[in-house]
């Protein structure tokens, strides 16, 4: 952990070398997702509500997933950009250092400019919470935290899994963005508005619904019994990241036996 902080501090120093570009990026990153929120707003302004969801409920949904995504992009950016590390052969360098490859890849990139996106999601989060007629009890706050943390795990898992693919092929990884970017866009809206198979996919395969839609039902007081189950559904994120890490280890082993 200490070493990770050291990695971050050195990356921060690097980033600080390019001050103007840093601020522009941060502001830009904060503004782009706003267009999505605006879209959401106008849609609700037109229809009043969608499938029983009010605008603020949907905004909360959007904020939670936005925050998770921004956090994992900030911290797990090294995996997002990993194919270049393999392409340039710099991964060899990581292998001759006495630390785990996961830690070193995490420490290879840290996207400070994503802090803007994070801030924007946080503002929407507090704003929608303040407008919603719900009482924020401790279990509900806890569930919200759990949703965000486990959301980070899922997105990071996706990044790790995508990165692992670059051990086999450098091309064609774009396909994986369907799941990362696509998943993020889908999960910004309450899952109940989609077709059954989409809902199933995002519940059982990539469990974004478990960190977002299901526990939100609990936070919003829409559950009919089984509260604990809804509350703890985000833990699916913990289950999700395990096979991703396994894939990573298989990938590293493959790399070391083929050297490509």
């Amino acid at each position: 952990m200490y070493l990770y902080l050291k990695y971050i501090s050195i990356l921060f120093k690097s980033q600080a070398q390019y001050r103007l570009s840093f601020w522009l990026l941060t502001v830009g990153q904060a503004l782009t997702p706003l267009t999505v929120l605006a879209g959401l707003y106008f849609m609700f302004a037109q229809f009043g509500q969608v499938k029983g969801w009010t605008f603020y409920e949907a905004a909360l949904c959007y904020a939670v997933i936005g925050l998770s995504y921004a956090l994992s992009e900030t911290f797990a950016r090294g995996f997002d950009m990993f194919s270049s590390l393999v392409g340039s052969g710099d991964f060899d360098r990581l292998l001759v250092r006495p630390r785990s490859t996961i830690l070193q890849v995490l420490g290879s990139k840290f996207e400070f400019a994503r802090l803007g996106r994070m801030l924007q999601s946080l503002i929407v989060l507090f704003w929608s919470l303040s407008k919603l007629p719900i009482e924020l009890t401790f279990p509900k706050l806890f569930t919200l935290m759990l949703m965000i943390v486990c959301g980070v795990l899922i997105f990071s898992g996706l990044f790790v899994a995508t990165a692992s693919l670059s051990f086999w092929t450098i091309q064609g990884i774009e396909v994986a963005n369907v799941f990362t970017d696509g998943g993020r866009e889908m999960a910004k809206y309450p899952l109940s508005i989609y077709e059954k198979w989409v809902t199933n996919f995002f519940t059982y395969v990539i469990p974004l619904g478990c960190v977002n839609y299901l526990p939100l039902l609990y936070v919003l007081g829409r559950t009919d019994g089984h509260q604990l189950r809804y509350m703890l559904s985000p833990l699916a994120g913990v289950v999700f990241i395990l096979p991703c890490l396994l894939l990573w280890h298989i990938g590293v082993r493959h790399y070391r036996s083929t050297g490509s």
Binding site: K6, I10, Q15
Partner: peptide, 18 residues
């Protein structure tokens, strides 16, 4: 070495890595 920072910072990080 880390490209954008002074050499001594890279040394410091290596110290922690090892």
């Amino acid at each position: 070495l880390w490209w954008d920072v002074p050499v001594i910072d890279s040394f410091g990080l290596l110290r922690d890595i090892y």
